[in-house]
Nucleic acid binder design. Structure first.
Ligand SMILES: [Zn+2]
Ligand SMILES: [Zn+2]
Ligand SMILES: [Zn+2]
Ligand SMILES: [Zn+2]
Lengths: 162, 162
DNA sequence: AACGCGCATGTAATATCATAACGTTCCGGG
DNA sequence: CCCGGAACGTTATGATATTACATGCGCGTT
């Protein structure tokens, strides 16, 4: 059940898409022996509502509306947890967070950010990562973490523009 | 005179390295018909002092010490100008800026950031960019801008750790 | 049961990064 | 000379992120 990486840019059964991600998240947490507590779970649900990236304060606002704490650390802690567990990613270019669409898979994600509709997709990044490792290794640099973030036009917006 | 991309991680004649970058910057600005004013030039010199990335407020502090304005826009404007002209790059992962080591060359830079000594190098990113374009194109996404930033260990720090 | 401990949660306060809005100066073209 | 745009400066504010500390809860030990 490898997800379509471009789903973010197409109509799809998103309720199912989010539900799958959520149940995978539960399995992953159980497996790792960590707790997907109510705030954390709710934060993930919030990120899963759309294929976009949300700022910590956006998430915080929704969490607060649901009766959770109103202070920044509430959101940052939940989000940090999700990122640590590989259930969400931080998009540095946007100072924002997005739910991982393929949690559990080892992956070197490449983010594609549509500048028109703000959708964010996670493309398979193995080839990019290989190229990066090659470039780094050639000058003796050992990569431990990398972020690859591209801004551009998604298929739908591309069509609309043409 | 293609610069060694790994110079940032090695001992080298850095005075010459910085002087070259500065004179290339002057040529580029003259060529583009834009003005490398005193603040802008000084900001570039500050970035060129080390192969590291500096936050806007770090640059601002040094500019202020040299008699320029003391308010954030002073630094941000100078830095934005340098980035626009391709004389500096913004490292989003660090919320910081670094001087371009090969200004003028069309380049799709890949940044290598040493987590131990904070040095930042700019590696040739053509291969990475090709892989990225391929991944994006396969799902119909057209990349307009990309940032590739890797954190890891530079050759020197790698050796020190082993 | 009582205790001690780790972890999750909450709050207040503060730090860090970035931009908006506006006035002044400088300088080249009409 | 006068105008207009670009650069620079300031004040104020907005947006993002962290530090420090208090409280409550589950859980194994005594
Ligand atoms: Zn979906
Ligand atoms: Zn789009
Ligand atoms: Zn140098
Ligand atoms: Zn190093």
């Amino acid at each position: 059940m490898t997800a379509d990486p471009s789903a973010a840019f197409h109509d799809h059964d998103h309720a199912a898409c989010a539900a799958t991600a959520l149940s995978r998240a539960e399995a992953i947490c159980a497996d790792a022996g960590v707790r997907l507590t109510p705030v954390r779970r709710r934060a993930l649900e919030i990120l899963l509502e759309e294929h976009r990236a949300l700022g910590a304060y956006d998430v915080l606002e929704k969490l607060a509306a649901d009766g959770f704490g109103k202070q920044p650390p509430v959101a940052y802690r939940a989000l940090d947890f999700l990122v640590e567990q590989g259930l969400a990613h931080r998009i540095r270019r946007l100072n924002a967070f997005t739910a991982c669409t393929t949690p559990g898979d080892a992956h070197a994600p490449v983010f594609l950010i549509c500048s028109t509709c703000d959708a964010v997709a996670e493309a398979p990044g193995a080839a990019v990562r290989d190229a990066l490792d090659g470039a780094a290794e050639s000058i003796g640099f050992a990569v431990t973490r990398a972020s690859v973030e591209a801004v551009g036009l998604c298929p739908a917006c591309r069509e609309a523009t043409s």
